[in-house]
Write a protein that binds this DNA or RNA. Structure first.
Lengths: 288, 288
DNA sequence: GAATCAGGTCCATATGGCGGACCCTATGTT
DNA sequence: AACATAGGGTCCGCCATATGGACCTGATTC
């Protein structure tokens, strides 16, 4: 493995993206990394030099990749500002993919209701590998807003109320796997979240019935989260509500937790009825 | 350009996908093509051999690409059936991209209302290059259903009620460009849609105020469509309703057209209020 | 007007992708 | 049981293709 490739892996690992081991078609690994980085940059886009810095690849290489991604419609470039954005083709593909991972379109209504009822900001997070990704933020009417989490942000599972709800919903063996996989990142970038601390948080979450983040990432940025399960029990997402400490005193926590649970089960029923498990019949069993 | 690459372009052109000219990072062109093909295959997935056939690349190459895409989470493979599907990462990225191309999540409610009110099936199509793509189909309660159009299908602009509504919403010069770009495909795969016929359909659509497809693709598969515009006038999508001829007699056409127009303008107001034109300030003007 | 910064491009080099040939398993067929 | 077919997946030597240091250009700053 070349030196710069180590650096990619290292940098991305720190940022919560794991480029993974690559054997063959390495261009695609780089392209995927760039897509993630552009996606994380959000609606204001990124600049070439930012991307070069973030993925530690030489500029011409990044530029070539970007050109190819533009050509494919997977990215967009503003011709004035020269900034790069996610492209129309990604949107189309994502829409088609939602037939399989259709939590989002269903959960949207829940988020709107939650943010209206509570006044605070509601989030939908989904698990991806050993991370949780915030895929939607719905602002509530209350004027003091917590902006610690943005759509596109990735954190190790267990960090933040949504991610903690997801982690606590996994069986213990999976929890340990996740903690092991994230050990380096946690130690490096999330000092309050040592493996033992996370085990404690998971226990608390399970007994309490909802996940609580008492400002562990950003002081006075509190949040409550609950997980959403597929019919086979696997967690496929988490709803959470963020507010300042003064708005999350114990009694209100309970109110909000019950609202969250109501919406979670609402989503679960919708998910199961639109998920007919439409699999082709043929079965094989000859894996190496 | 090598022989097999010509073949890719040729095959995909026939199917309405244009691989485009490729200079540098050609792996990404192939990867993007595969993503499109898997996306078009829909929720039942595709097999390796289908993909090999559709993109006319040698099997090991396709497989290497697929492995890389699986590694990146852009695709999924069912370990039993060995079929390939769009992956979770595509879904996440698509969700993030919808911040920029957010028609879908807004339009969903319109589609539900339309299919409930009319009983028939409602579609959302978006323009992409010189094609229209059906990104959502919402079934209505009426038992006789027209299944000529599926989510993921691409047709040249002007073919089908949604695509015709989109084409007719473009200025004449753009219409001519689109017709020229699609000339080969139209002649080859859509015999009823000669350029002159399409020009006539566009005129009819503009004077009538809505697009009508009187079973031109599939006998007795009729449809009505209207376009959705951004604040600057560009069409960004189309709503359509499909039914059999007997359910689309002239008076009902008018009723449905007015329902479609009502929903289209509902979407337009939502689009404009959630599209704050959030662009970075810096401006440059030095294009080669 | 010199210095800095950002976007973008060039081209000799060698690395990593290419694809014909091959293997394995499952499912007919005689 | 032996044979045939079809689909999924892998190997490895050759050479086409991506690589990246160096360079160009236009803005912005001092």
């Amino acid at each position: 493995m070349l030196e710069y490739q180590k650096t990619i892996a290292a940098r991305l690992a720190v940022q919560g993206i794991d480029a993974g081991a690559s054997y063959g078609a390495q261009a695609i690994d780089k392209a995927a990394t760039l897509l993630l980085l552009v996606g994380r940059a959000g609606p204001s886009g990124t600049r070439l030099s930012d991307l070069v810095e973030q993925c530690s690849l030489p500029k011409p290489t990044v530029r070539r990749m970007l050109l190819a991604l533009l050509r494919a419609g997977l990215l967009d470039q503003d011709s004035d500002t020269r900034r790069y954005y996610l492209g129309p083709e990604i949107h189309v593909l994502g829409t088609l993919a939602s037939a399989r991972f259709g939590i989002h379109s269903i959960a949207l209504r829940s988020l709107v209701r939650l943010s209206q009822q509570t006044g605070d900001t509601a989030f939908l997070s989904v698990p991806r590998d050993v991370h949780s990704i915030c895929v939607h933020r719905e602002e509530g009417p209350y004027p003091i807003r917590v902006h610690a989490l943005h759509a596109g942000d990735r954190h190790p599972l267990g960090v933040g109320a949504g991610g903690l709800a997801l982690l606590a919903a996994l069986p213990d063996e999976d929890v340990e796997e996740v903690l092991a996989a994230n050990a380096d990142i946690l130690a490096d970038k999330y000092p309050p979240f040592s493996p033992s601390a996370l085990r404690g948080l998971v226990q608390d979450t399970r007994t309490r019935g909802y996940a609580l983040n008492p400002g562990m990432l950003l002081p006075d940025s509190w949040a409550i989260g609950v997980s959403i399960h597929r019919s086979d029990g696997r967690p496929v997402g988490a709803l959470s509500i963020a507010a300042t400490e003064s708005r999350l005193y114990p009694e209100r926590q309970l109110e909000i937790a019950s609202l969250l649970k109501k919406e979670a089960s609402w989503i679960e029923t919708r998910l199961n009825e639109t998920d007919p498990g439409e699999k082709p019949a043929r079965v094989r069993r000859n894996r190496p």
